[in-house]
Each structure stands twice: as structure tokens, then as C-alpha cells.
């Protein structure tokens, strides 16, 4: 119990550092760019236009509002991939600091996740714009959106903690992970209907934790269905398990970071 009180106290003490680091991340990202924060919007929109031109004729019959279908998957995947990829560098690029001064190291990884999550929230405006422009119907179940965003946040946070730890010891993990992300993208039914996957390969979607978030998010935003209870549970469980693994691995290895930086 005492240990948790101490954790809480240091978190409180360093909470301001967390906010400063998040602000620094955001400022850095948009520094020197003329359109600044607008890029978080324009990027997914341009991406969507290209993908729509390429794929909409291909899947025309099975997907009726292709831009919305695409964005609901693309934005969630974009957040997960960018956040986890950036996390791999988070500890290494702060080596200078970690070697000189004591700070709780998870603050560095956490600030990266939060900054990326904020970019993600901004990019969701692109989805709103497209939904309005295409007059997409909206159902009451859209109120479930925060649930998916929060569970996805914790899922990504756990993965980020895990990856930032591992990359300290194995620097070339980054290259492998880039390939892995490409595979993950194709296995997440972002720009094709999930139904086109033959039954015997359907398990790929089931074992892909990210797909459950995309499927749930799509159900409430794109289809306007009520979310399945099973889906809600799976997302919750994935978030909790990911956080647990992330925290345990990070906690166990963090004292050794300094020897490898």
C-alpha cells in the first residue's frame, strides 16, 4: 500500500513535467510548418481521397459510404501505429536527460502517448467533416465513441511502454516493427470489407487486437449499430492486459536502461 502512495505522490510531483513534455512534443511537431495543426486534419483527408479513388470502385457494391468506412479504420490504425512507433524512440532520444537527472522514466513514454492521442483527437475532426459532407446517418450509439477512444488509449499506452523498453536493449527492433505494422494494417480491414476474407482466414481478424477496436468503432459510427457486448468486453480486456504487460516489463527493466543508453 505504501508503495502505491509513493507512486501516486511522485506522479503528482511530476505531473507538471508531463504537461510540459506533452506541450513540447506538440510544439515541435508543428514548428516551422505554415499550416501548423491543420496538418493533422489535411493528412488523413488527402489520404482518404487517394484511397477512395483507388479502392471505391473495387468495393463499390459492398461498402456504401467508402470515405467514412475508410476513415473509421484509417484514423484508429493511424493513431496506434504512430504512437507505438514514436514510443520506440522515446526513451532512447531522452538518453541525454536520463543519464543526468532522475525523473520517473515512464513520464517520457506517457507524454509521447498523450501527445499522439491529442493529434488523433484533432484528426477525428476530419471524420466529422466527411460525415457531414456525405450526410452520413448518425445513431444514438455514437455515444459509445469515448469508450472506444479510452480503451484504445490504454491499449496503445501498454504497447508503447512495452516497446520503448525493448528498443533500449534491441535497437533494430524498429525495422522489424515497421514491417509488422504493414502486416497489421492489411490484417485490420481498413480499406476492404471484412467479409471478403475467406472463412478459414477469418481468425486473423479475431487474433488482431486492434481489429476489435476498429470493428466496434465502425459499428457505432458507420453502421449505427449498438455495440456487441462481446466486443465491448474484448476491448476492455485487451486494454487491461496490455497495460499490465507494459507496466510490468517497464518496471522490471527500467533500472537497466541507463546501462544501455
Amino acid at each position: 500500500m505504501k508503495r502505491y502512495i509513493r507512486y501516486f505522490k511522485t506522479f503528482q510531483q511530476y505531473f507538471f513535467l508531463l504537461t510540459v513534455l506533452v506541450k513540447t512534443d506538440i510544439k515541435k511537431k508543428y514548428k516551422g510548418s505554415f499550416l501548423g495543426v491543420l496538418w493533422s486534419l489535411i493528412n488523413p483527408l488527402l489520404d482518404m481521397i487517394v484511397m477512395t479513388i483507388v479502392f471505391s470502385t473495387l468495393f463499390q457494391r459492398s461498402i456504401d459510404n467508402f470515405p467514412v468506412y475508410l476513415l473509421t479504420g484509417r484514423l484508429l490504425f493511424g493513431f496506434f501505429s504512430q504512437c507505438t512507433k514514436a514510443s520506440m524512440k522515446s526513451i532512447i532520444s531522452s538518453a541525454k536527460l536520463i543519464k543526468k537527472i532522475y525523473i520517473p522514466k515512464y513520464i517520457i513514454s506517457l507524454s509521447n502517448v498523450i501527445a499522439n492521442f491529442l493529434f488523433f483527437l484533432i484528426s477525428l475532426v476530419a471524420l466529422i467533416i466527411i460525415m457531414l459532407a456525405t450526410r452520413a446517418p448518425v445513431s444514438i450509439y455514437i455515444l459509445y465513441v469515448p469508450y472506444y477512444l479510452i480503451t484504445l488509449f490504454f491499449f496503445s499506452c501498454g504497447v508503447s511502454l512495452f516497446l520503448s523498453t525493448l528498443t533500449v536493449f534491441f535497437r533494430d527492433l524498429e525495422h522489424i516493427y515497421t514491417v509488422f505494422l504493414t502486416v497489421l494494417m492489411y490484417a485490420s480491414a481498413i480499406f476492404y470489407p471484412a467479409e471478403i476474407i475467406p472463412d478459414r482466414f477469418r481468425f486473423i481478424l479475431t487474433i488482431n487486437p486492434l481489429y476489435h477496436f476498429i470493428a466496434g468503432f465502425r459499428a457505432v459510427v458507420y453502421h449505427g449499430f449498438a455495440p456487441e457486448a462481446k466486443n465491448l468486453l474484448v476491448c476492455f480486456a485487451v486494454a487491461v492486459v496490455s497495460m499490465m504487460i507494459g507496466i510490468i516489463v517497464f518496471e522490471k527493466k527500467q533500472d537497466r536502461f541507463i546501462l544501455y543508453l
Partner: peptide
């Protein structure tokens, strides 16, 4: 040690102070 070269001295006072565990 905690300075970020891209930012101003003022911003770095906050950054460095935060690194030393101080509040806003």
C-alpha cells in the same frame, strides 16, 4: 542537461524546473 535547444530560455526554465520536480 534538460535544455531543449529549439525552445526559448523562458520555456526552458519551465522545462528544466519541471524536470527537477517543481510545479508550475
Amino acid at each position: 542537461a534538460g535544455f531543449d535547444d529549439e525552445f526559448s530560455g523562458a520555456e526552458n526554465i519551465y522545462l528544466n524546473g519541471a524536470i527537477l520536480g517543481k510545479t508550475k
